[in-house]
Nucleic acid binder design. Structure first.
Lengths: 207, 207
DNA sequence: GTCTATATTGCGATAGAC
DNA sequence: GTCTATCGCAATATAGAC
């Protein structure tokens, strides 16, 4: 976007790129600006110079990561031609891809749920309720089409879907260890989880 | 356990009781010993005196909370007389009850997943793999009885179950707001989630 | 067992030289 | 735009009085 040529990264970008994994893995409070500067390979004073302090840097980091989420939502919105079940399968694939492409995004968001900062209300809530709205819309549509069970509450069911899909990544520290090895563990998990969910919401006879 | 009479709480207990919500809601790094001492209503020096520092206090807090988890696992283990689907329904009920009774336990564990401390390997992993083993055991049993679909991997399916059940609590900051109000929201969520899951894993014709 | 006072370290931010 | 040096402050931990 902002790059003018490809030869060198700007100082701002160096700081942002170094800050993403640090904030994601250790949490806002446990990361020092010294640490951030060293990881970025820049002088410690430049963090205040460019971002106006650690707190603003963190907010900037969250914004870059929510740009990723917003893009993901855009992609799954463009699925009007698919039927609801296929939309949900597609959602699972996109989530799996996002975790490969942006491995720190989810960690940062999860961190906001557990230890919210000022950014939780301003950034996190807005984007994620949009996502839940999209999913509950799919489910409502499917119920009206007679495909999903009519005793479902679509909003609650949308949250369940996010839960079953994301939990593997949330518990990655443990799940990668205790689950039996598979060639592509994450993809296998998501596939089984999405199919389980779909069997769970589809009306019995449609199968 | 250790209480000799009911009249007064010991200083250790005052500190522990105050530390649980603070560590749970703000995370280890964001809580100061000054804050802990004030919340407990004790002198700041007593935290080092009784626990040997903030880090050891945190470990002690985690241990008290995992005693809660261990007790929960004990309760759901005593369900040999139930069939697998009933065991899973019972698991959902126990999880819901635990969140009411010990509202900070899950938060502390979630925090360990996102920003692990030294206690993650020593405490968290051990207890939670036990829980997943119990659940995957139920599922394996159900597959052998011909009740659950035989294409399921029980370990992966157990993780899905934990995910669909726990996600509401994990995202409580958001879910309580965006979900349509219900008289007992958490219980409603868990019921729908567990039934969805069970419909998802049961072989189609049994219904 | 509890307190005050203090030692020591590391933090985030900035002034000012280059 | 980048650096060094430093300020002011809050952190954890402890020594020693009571």
């Amino acid at each position: 976007m902002k790059k003018e040529n490809v030869t060198e990264k700007s100082t701002m970008d160096k700081i942002l790129d170094a800050a993403i994994p640090l904030f994601a893995m250790k949490g806002y409070a446990a990361v020092s600006v010294k640490e951030l500067a060293e990881a970025a390979g820049v002088n410690i004073a430049l963090i205040s110079y460019y971002f106006g302090g650690k707190e603003n840097l963190y907010a900037a980091v969250l914004k870059t990561q929510f740009a990723v989420i917003a893009e993901m939502i855009d992609v799954i919105r463009k699925t009007d031609h698919l039927n609801p079940a296929e939309k949900i399968r597609f959602f699972g694939q996109i989530v799996a891809q996002s975790h490969v492409k942006c491995p720190y995004t989810s960690h940062l968001i999860y961190g906001e749920f557990i230890n919210p900062t000022a950014s939780f209300d301003t950034i996190v809530k807005k984007e994620l309720s949009q996502l839940n709205n999209f999913l509950s819309g799919c489910i409502r549509e499917a119920i009206e089409l007679g495909q999903f069970r009519e005793d479902l509450d679509p909003e609650y069911a949308a949250l369940s879907l996010s839960g079953i899909v994301n939990f593997y990544f949330f518990t990655q520290n443990l799940s990668k260890e205790i689950l039996p090895p598979r060639e592509n563990q994450a993809e296998y998990y998501i596939n089984q989880a999405v199919e389980t969910y779909l069997h769970g919401v589809l009306v019995p006879n449609i199968l």
